[in-house]
Nucleic acid binder design. Structure first.
Lengths: 291, 291
DNA sequence: CGAAATTCCTATGACGTCATATTAGTGAAA
DNA sequence: TTTCACTAATATGACGTCATAGGAATTTCG
């Protein structure tokens, strides 16, 4: 026998949702159905595709191999569905959005949501490395990623250019400076985003070039937390201009050695890029950043 | 209800084979099955997809729209099938090949057939315009086309470079020349390929640039016929070097004004390009032309 | 010449087979 | 207990086949 849609679609949803039950809910069928489909697919392939663990499922190597195909099938299926409904309503749907910085992602989401209030948006903020990976693995639909990797099977559109700056409170020692250099940071407490972030990579590279080290370094998970920390007077933070909403009372100062320009990109797997929902999201992103 | 792959696959096969019965034979099901699937699809779409005529079927505008999707689904389906079978046997299959010149197509087909004798090859020679169109419309799987158009959804690989030359019999008035110019051709009978061919386009453009006209012009459908005509002493023919097997006793002479280089390309729709059969054909093409 | 037969298509209805999804029930882990 | 994955039994419906009908060219033959 040959595998059919149902099996691949069930498999794909399980991978993306991370569990059989969640996939079943999303698909609007019982969990039993999903189990049967995935089992059948595994039987046809002749090996396990998923590792079932208490905390969710993960892909086996074979599973990873098949997931690419399965997801392309799902994308095509959605596209066919859209065409059948005559491109009519976008009154339903889900979109998994991933970003490595709150801005401009949240702004884009706001615009998009304004236009399509009934589309459920699933936003996740994570570090640069993970963000790239989630798109590559097709777990997320679209990404807004700084300096996203380039790949043949990705659609990648540059949205805006930005560079690293120092953020501090207006009563900070460096607050009155027009520009600062790395050497000015040595005796300051510096806050950086978590491991895996592009910021960490860039900063560490710069420091390595100059054979310097920041003695007072704090890393934090997300940008809003960093902002809050700066506001509390914990220190000064380095991150991309425009990557988070900046509270009043904070100042941003260019850093002499971080003149390199970085690009915020819209990315999506090419097979998915034809989908109406994703097209609209891209349109919203372009509308925001080029206004 | 939602349409499923059976319906799309049936539809796609009907389009490519040009009839319900032929599609049924190819699919290994009864004609009744194919009819039912296509009807169901039409019912779901809400309009006719095919115009049934005595001499075959043709696409309605809506049908054309859906055929793109249907064919991508078929390609994906094949790819999944290949993956499941572990890329094992290529002992069956069909490949529609289109070209605007016998060479190097026939040579490539010979190589390919040597390696995969059980793959049925369906070769069609046609003019440049039609060849491009057949690939664009996904009626053919692969093409070997001179200066094929570039498109986002095509895979396009340059195989070899060539240029226009004059072919004539060794007793022809120009046979002893090392090189000829357009002016030398004015008082000769010149044979060109049919309307729509790249040769016609190029030659007419050159003539228009110089505001000249060839007084004694004959056009013929295919390259082998042109060769035969030259051999019979009908006149001299202009066509791409290496585009047909040249009989002994014919000489080829460069033309001064036709120095522009043309590229013979391998082309295939990108969705199909991942298929094993098509990969192997491309490999055969590259093996021939870069040996 | 022209009507009937032939041939090549596609369409339809009835029917058996198999696949799909549901409900219900089991066991395991948190 | 609750959550989750798997399994068994079952109803529904889809798929494919056969037999058959109808339409439109082509051929046959009086």
């Amino acid at each position: 026998m040959r595998p059919n849609h149902h099996q691949f679609i069930a498999f794909s949803y399980v991978v993306r949702e991370g569990s059989f039950s969640a996939a079943a809910r999303r698909l609007g069928v019982t969990q039993s159905t999903v189990t049967q489909h995935v089992s059948k697919l595994e039987e046809l392939v002749g090996s396990e595709l998923l590792l079932r663990r208490r905390d969710g499922v993960s892909l086996t190597p074979t599973g990873r191999d098949f997931f690419g195909l399965a997801d392309r099938l799902v994308a095509l299926d959605c596209e066919i569905g859209e065409r059948l409904r005559g491109y009519s309503s976008l009154n339903e749907g889900r979109l998994k959005v991933i970003a490595n910085a709150p801005q401009p992602a949240l702004q884009v989401i706001a615009t998009f949501n304004d236009r399509f209030p009934n589309v459920h948006i699933d936003f996740r903020l994570c570090d640069w490395t993970t963000a790239n990976q989630l798109i590559r693995d097709r777990v997320a639909d679209v990404g807004l990623i700084t300096d996203a990797s380039e790949r043949d099977d990705w659609e990648r559109v540059v949205l805006q250019e930005t560079r690293y700056v120092l953020y501090c409170r207006s009563d900070h020692a460096l607050a009155d400076r027009d520009i600062v250099g790395i050497e000015d940071l040595m005796d300051q407490t510096i806050i950086l985003p978590e491991q895996g972030s592009l910021t960490q990579q860039v900063v560490h590279q710069k420091l390595a070039e100059r054979q310097m080290e920041l003695p007072q370094l704090i890393t934090m998970t997300t940008f809003p937390v960093m902002c809050e920390a700066v506001r509390q007077g914990l220190g000064a933070a380095i991150f991309l201009k425009n990557s988070s909403h900046i509270y009043d009372g904070l100042v941003e100062i260019p850093i002499r050695d971080f003149h390199q320009i970085h690009q915020t990109c819209f990315v999506a797997p090419k097979d998915r890029a034809r989908l109406k929902l994703i097209n609209e999201f891209r349109a919203a992103a372009l509308a925001i950043t080029f206004q």
